[in-house]
Amino acid sequence: MTLANQLTLLRIALIPLLVIVFYLPYSWAHPVAAAIFTFAAITDWLDGYIARKYDQSTAFGAFLDPVADKLMVVVALVLLVEMHASPWFAVPAVVIVGREIVISALREWMAELGKRASVAVSMMGKVKTTVQMIAIIVLLAFYPQVGSWQTTLGYILLYAAALLTLWSMIIYIRAAWPELMAGEGE
């Protein structure tokens, strides 16, 4: 088991801890939940760096890393949707989760065609992920208060992440479009 894969498994193991800490009835629960999510986000970057730098890329890691990322983000968004309980929060959360489902399916389908490289992670996807992670960290760290700068910043970042999410999805779909439409005109 490579160090990169161990970090990915650690990220998955942090999910139940995130949920438990999030629901603790203490004033420190939200900042600690944000710290757990931050640590998980750092391990996301670190496992990829280690896998590339030390040639630790494995098929298992290529499968597990995006699964771990999506699980952590979706769980955090579900927790936050409950806490914020408004359509203004639910809409960007649904956009982000929906995009992850669409792109995962697209990548799987393109891999079956032997064309996974055409929908590989792009720089736009990395920017989207960074903004999304920062938004979630800010939103986890502070209990929502109408008009507070932390809540406002979190919402702005979440909407920015949702817009980047849509933009990156369009980029991936455009790259796969020839394959998606193959045989449609016949």
Rank of each mutant, 00 (worst) to 15 (best):
V78F: 14
S122I: 14
F142V: 14
R107N: 09
L164Y: 00
E82G: 14
V146W: 13
I101S: 00
M83E: 15
Y159W: 15
P87I: 15
V73C: 07
V127L: 15
K70N: 02
V138H: 10
V91C: 06
A76E: 10
K115C: 07
V146M: 11
G147H: 08
V94M: 15
L113E: 15
Y143H: 14
P87E: 13
H84R: 12
F89C: 10
V74S: 14
V121W: 00
Y155D: 03
S104G: 14
A141D: 08
V102K: 13
V121E: 07
V131G: 03
S148C: 06
M123K: 09
A105C: 12
T151K: 09
F89I: 14
H84T: 07
L113H: 09
E82L: 13
V119Y: 02
E108C: 02
V131A: 05
V146R: 10
L140K: 05
V127F: 00
T151M: 05
S86V: 12
Q145I: 15
G98F: 05
S86A: 10
V95G: 03
S104Y: 05
K126C: 07
M133I: 10
T129P: 03
L79N: 12
L158Y: 08
W88F: 14
R107F: 06
I103N: 05
T151V: 04
A162C: 00
A76Q: 03
V119L: 03
P144R: 13
L80T: 02
L139N: 10
K115I: 05
L71N: 06
A76T: 02
L166W: 01
G114K: 04
A160Q: 05
V131P: 03
L106I: 05
Y159K: 06
I134P: 04
V78T: 04
M72F: 11
V91L: 09
L139T: 12
T165H: 01
G98C: 04
F142D: 13
G98R: 11
A135P: 07
A162G: 03
A111E: 15
K128T: 07
A111T: 12
V75F: 10
W88K: 12
I137H: 09
L158T: 03
V127N: 03
A85N: 14
A90N: 08
W88S: 10
T151H: 10
I137D: 02
S118F: 07
A90F: 12
K128M: 04
M133K: 10
S122M: 03
L164N: 02
D69L: 08
F89Y: 15
L163G: 01
I137Y: 06
I136N: 10
T152N: 11
L140R: 08
L77A: 06
